[in-house]
Simulated assay, not measured.
Amino acid sequence: MNDIIKHYETAKKKAIKFMKKGQINAYFDALIEMNHYKKLMIAVQSN
């Protein structure tokens, strides 16, 4: 679970960085990556 949280936080930092730079496509990719790790966290937590 800790690894998933670390990956989620890294993706979140990348998303914020891309948003500030105005790189919309990279920002959306980072948001998709965040969503992936969030789903994994929910799946692990529910089991």
Rank of each mutant, 00 (worst) to 15 (best):
T10R: 10
K17Y: 12
A30N: 00
E9I: 08
F18S: 07
K6G: 02
T10W: 06
Y37N: 00
K12W: 05
Q45N: 15
Q23H: 15
D29C: 05
E33R: 01
Q23R: 13
K14F: 06
K38H: 09
Y37P: 01
Y27A: 05
S46I: 10
L31M: 11
N25V: 09
N47C: 10
A26S: 13
M41W: 04
E9P: 00
I16K: 15
T10N: 11
Y37A: 00
A11W: 05
K21D: 06
M19Y: 13
I4P: 07
A11V: 03
K39H: 07
N25Q: 14
L31Y: 06
I24Q: 07
A11L: 00
F18I: 01
K39R: 10
I5R: 14
I5Q: 15
N35R: 12
I4C: 08
D29P: 03
A43E: 09
H36P: 04
N35S: 14
H7C: 04
T10M: 08
L31I: 14
K21F: 02
M19L: 15
H7V: 02
K39Y: 09
G22M: 05
I5M: 13
N2A: 14
V44E: 15
D3T: 04
N35K: 07
N47R: 13
E9F: 00
K13N: 11
N2D: 14
I24M: 10
H36C: 06
A11D: 01
Q45K: 15
K12N: 13
K17D: 13
N25K: 11
A30P: 04
K12D: 03
K17F: 08
K12Q: 07
Y8C: 03
A30E: 04
I24F: 11
K21V: 03
F18G: 02
Q45H: 13
Y8K: 10
I4V: 14
K6A: 11
